[in-house]
């Protein structure tokens, strides 16, 4: 069996997007949007490290514009996507790009650092073609996250009982967890759970957010 990276017909026919490149524009916008959703608020500064093909052609493909559009919360088919730089400037967000010459696993890789006061988030995203993306690292934790399946990401304080409380919410709702990754910076600090489930239910997100010691929860498909 091959390394199966594409699961849906809409990975191939789609997405509907603003041009010019599905890897460099739509994929970049999706990476930006995921990072923004995990961050949960508008950042004050955005620093984007670009690797390989992203580093070499980011201006021509609008990768820079698309990443920032995503980080402002726009989807790849947002007609305002081409104006993202101006919109970021108007909102007082400082944006910088750092092309890197280091070798990485995939040609279209971006490492994004968002900051607002003490709140900092660093995420590595990869655009694997046709607008499809993978998230490979959050705050220094190596993870593997492919979009296209119901996925919850929690950021919470590293205290006993969090995993039990979170999984209870899914179990009470009768939702099966497919994969689950738990990781943390260091003992007692912030931790992250990435939960891929077989189904989605409207009220799960709110229930997770209400848990004590929960900092932020995001949902993707």
């Amino acid at each position: 069996m091959p390394d199966v990276r594409f699961h849906s017909v809409f990975d191939i026919i789609g997405p509907v997007m603003v041009g010019p490149s599905s890897s460099h524009t739509a994929g970049a916008a999706r990476i930006g949007k995921v990072v923004r959703d995990i961050f949960g608020e508008a950042p004050e500064t955005i620093t984007i490290y670009l690797y390989e093909s992203f580093a070499k052609t980011y201006r021509g493909h609008g990768t820079d514009v698309a990443l920032v559009a995503g980080l402002l919360g726009m989807a790849p088919d947002d007609p305002h996507l081409p104006e993202s730089m101006k919109l970021a400037y108007d909102q007082g967000i400082k944006v910088s790009f750092v092309p890197k010459s280091d070798k990485v696993d995939h040609p279209n890789t971006a490492h994004i650092v968002l900051q607002k006061g003490d709140h900092r988030l660093a995420v590595t995203g990869v655009s694997i073609g046709g607008g499809n993306i993978q998230i490979t690292e959050i705050n220094g934790f190596k993870i593997s996250l492919s979009m296209g399946q119901p996925t919850y990401i929690t950021i919470h304080e590293d205290v006993p009982g969090m995993i039990a409380q979170v999984t209870k919410i899914f179990s009470d709702a009768g939702i099966n967890i497919g994969t689950m990754t738990v990781t943390r910076e260091s003992k007692g600090e912030q931790a992250i759970m990435i939960i891929e489930t077989d189904d989605y239910q409207d009220d799960i997100l709110a229930k997770l957010k209400q848990l004590p010691h929960m900092v932020n929860v995001t949902y993707f498909e």
């Binding site: 990975d11 191939i12 026919i13 789609g14 997405p15 509907v16 997007m17 603003v18 041009g19 010019p20 490149s21 599905s22 890897s23 524009t25 739509a26 609008g62 088919d77 007609p79 996507l81 081409p82 073609g129 046709g130 607008g131």
Partner: peptide
């Protein structure tokens, strides 16, 4: 041509080959 002007297209399978 619409893709190159940052217009709306449907990627099939990519934007460059839409």
């Amino acid at each position: 041509e619409v893709n190159a002007k940052m217009g709306l297209i449907c990627a099939t399978p990519t934007a460059g080959s839409a």
